[in-house]
């Protein structure tokens, strides 16, 4: 106990500068934290929030109907423009697409994520991660163009249906108004499939992380209490994976809301929000309307998260 007092050489030697700095930080842990998170916070605050507010501010200006110049007076008329039929179409169309892509991604991702979380080990797990991440490594544009070739009238899928003598089935499907079209690549179904493909990894990874945190005993306990696997899925597994599904859906939903390249290459040419922002911004400088359009996904995501929270999606966190 008293060895420090009696030892002949004091263990406390004169500190050099680096040691002194370490000492100060050791004594004041909050200073250390401030130093660590200060720069990224400043970056976020200035660059992100600053840009966001600049955007918000723009959306409260309006464009002069005749000259096409921006009028720098606060007004809500630009937001009123969002409710014109053709603009409302764009919003509803985009939200419907984002919602269906998200639901489909959750359904497709869940079994894959479940397999990876529960059964894949060692080499298979590595292959799983590679398989999920590989599409993310290649250029987004390359993937979308590749899908255009797959979905084209004379493309790979068309050929496949023809080889299987199922062309009638494809034609019957494409004849359905709304989701059909002249070919898959010019239909909403095509846009949907490409979105589903490009955003799927963003759903699989968080769901897989959530499922990995569910102890196996939780599922055994459910079965032990009489629940068939389907009931366990509904009452235990999905509620526990919900934070992961919500996290994934934030990605798939918001990425679809904002995308403007996929619907331009694959689909019916009818605009989605991202394209509208792009076009209004680049044309006659209607920045206020572009800004108002850009605010829409932010609001939708805020409402979505609020509902998710109210529904208890984060209770298992």
């Amino acid at each position: 106990m008293t060895s420090a007092d009696t030892s002949p050489a004091s263990p406390v030697t004169a500190p050099d500068a680096a040691t002194r700095l370490s000492d100060i930080l050791w004594r004041r842990p909050r200073l250390l934290i401030a130093l660590l998170i200060g720069p990224p916070l400043a970056w976020l605050g200035i660059v992100y929030l600053g840009a966001l507010f600049a955007l918000l501010a723009q959306s409260f200006f309006s464009i002069d109907e005749f000259s096409g110049q921006i009028r720098y007076e606060l007004t809500l008329s630009t937001y009123a423009e969002l409710f014109r039929a053709y603009n409302l179409d764009i919003i509803l169309r985009t939200v419907a697409m984002a919602a269906s892509v998200t639901v489909a991604a959750a359904i497709v991702a869940f079994p894959i994520a479940y397999y990876a979380a529960r059964y894949a080990t060692g080499r298979w797990k590595a292959i799983f991660y590679l398989g999920i991440m590989l599409p993310l490594w290649s250029s987004y544009l390359v993937k979308v163009y590749a899908w255009k070739l797959i979905l084209a009238k004379e493309g790979i899928l068309g050929w496949l249906f023809e080889t299987l003598h199922l062309t009638w089935l494809l034609e019957a499907y494409l004849a359905i108004p709304g989701i059909g079209g002249n070919s898959l690549s010019v239909s909403w179904t095509g846009t949907f499939l490409v979105f589903l493909y490009v955003w799927l990894p963003f759903m699989i990874l968080p769901v897989q992380a959530a499922l990995e945190r569910v102890p196996p005993s939780m599922l055994e306990a459910s079965g032990d209490l009489g629940a068939r696997p389907g009931q366990t899925l509904r009452h235990v597994l999905i509620p526990l994976a919900l934070p992961g599904i919500i996290a994934g859906s934030i990605f798939t939903f918001s990425l679809t809301l904002g995308d403007y390249i996929v619907p331009q290459i694959v689909g019916t040419s009818a605009r989605m929000i991202g394209q509208a922002v792009y076009q209004y911004q680049g044309t006659a400088g209607n920045i206020p309307l572009a800004a108002a359009f850009a605010v829409v996904p932010i609001l939708i995501m805020a409402v979505y998260l609020w509902i998710a929270k109210r529904k208890g999606a984060f209770d298992a966190l």
Partner: peptide, 27 residues
């Protein structure tokens, strides 16, 4: 542009943009 040569007042490009978006969107 609004002030056009051939007649009194023309529909400006700014309207062309949003209306063409509407047409492509099925309006």
């Amino acid at each position: 542009v609004t002030q056009c040569d051939s007649q009194e007042q023309c529909v400006p490009y700014y309207r062309w943009v949003s209306d063409y978006i509407g047409v492509i969107g099925g309006r």
